[in-house]
Design a binder for these strands. Structure first.
Lengths: 189, 189
DNA sequence: GATATATTTAACCAGTGGTCAATAAAAGGA
DNA sequence: TCCTTTTATTGACCACTGGTTAAATATATC
């Protein structure tokens, strides 16, 4: 019985979130239990509840930053000095790269069906999409419709979703991702 | 104790499969239990096990035909007398319609990450994709690459996946689906 | 030493897939 | 018609998982 560990090995929110992240990547959100997360950390499951009110709150803490990460990716690309066409390509591959690099994040952000979890995310998805859409739209000038931008998003989403399911990293499909980006570019130019 | 139901109707595999289908559409594979299915039917869960060895077998019985259903959809479109371009459009919207009409099927066919479930499907996904790819390829003549066909598939997949998540029927997004199809057509013509 | 803090442990509760003896209804013969 | 056999259904039961909570207790802080 060791009802409290020494300070150096005390559990933190960050530790829990890191472990949770890893497990989600590996097994998917649905198949990770609080007990598993605790076991991974070498703590009892009860300890998690000291740091997070419940499972949903833990998930929300995780997902909260994921959208701003993606926003940052988009911002950084938009800042670059580059031809519009190249920039578009970068946005497309950048989106895919984000999705496949942070698969568990992506899953939670865009793939989870669970109502309970999704109710935690309010406007983040819309906000991030707005940023994406504005960027794409501004780089295409007038030969593209709002509809088209949405189609592009869905098409990228399809790419990420498929390869998420088969758990490969971005590097494994870099060539395919670029081809996909080119394919989409062809539709709008 | 009423160890057997009076008159009424006896349970059949079809009844079970119908109820299961509905529940899967609604809640997804993981969140439907044998007990829920039984309850929906007004029988005890034990009765299900008289008709199906276990949950997996029930799912497989369900999914088994889904691929051939999609194959049939593709075949029927290919049989039609139509301009290639229109046929392509029909294939695209037909795929989406299938995905959104049989969301639970689609989910199992193309979206489930669960190893246990996926091990049930052997070559069906590949076979169905082959049929899709051959059809599309033959309708495009030479101005399209194998890569492009794959991109089309992923793009349609993205559409279905997204709207599956938000549980809407095909009718609710028919206009969007057609726009998406047109978008994809533009990329290859 | 007292108090706040962090952790474990055990337990609760609801739910799961799955098994099976008991049993009533239906079917088939005589 | 009665009797047997087959068939389909039930509900108790098992072993398990998962989220959550509360009491107990060891450490840290003052």
């Amino acid at each position: 019985m060791t009802p409290r560990k020494t300070v150096q090995q005390e559990l933190t929110k960050e530790m829990i979130m890191d472990a949770a992240r890893d497990l989600f990547s590996e097994k998917g959100y649905q198949h990770v239990s609080m007990r598993q997360i605790a076991k991974e950390l070498g703590y009892s499951h009860g300890a998690l509840y000291y740091h997070f009110k419940n499972k949903a709150e833990l998930f929300y803490a995780l997902v909260e930053n994921h959208f701003s990460m993606l926003n940052t990716v988009l911002d950084q690309i938009m800042k670059k000095e580059m031809e519009p066409r190249e920039k578009l390509r970068e946005i497309f591959t950048g989106f895919i790269q984000f999705g496949l690099t942070y698969q568990s994040h992506y899953e939670i952000m865009f793939l989870i069906k669970d109502e309970e979890v999704r109710n935690f995310m309010n406007e983040e998805p819309n906000h991030t999409y707005e940023k994406f859409a504005k960027s794409v739209y501004s780089l295409c000038e007038k030969n593209v419709s709002i509809q088209d931008v949405w189609s592009i998003f869905l098409s990228l989403h399809g790419f990420v979703t498929h390869y998420c399911r088969h758990v490969v990293g971005y590097e494994d499909v870099k060539g395919l991702a670029e081809a996909h980006a080119n394919f989409l570019l062809r539709a709008i130019l």
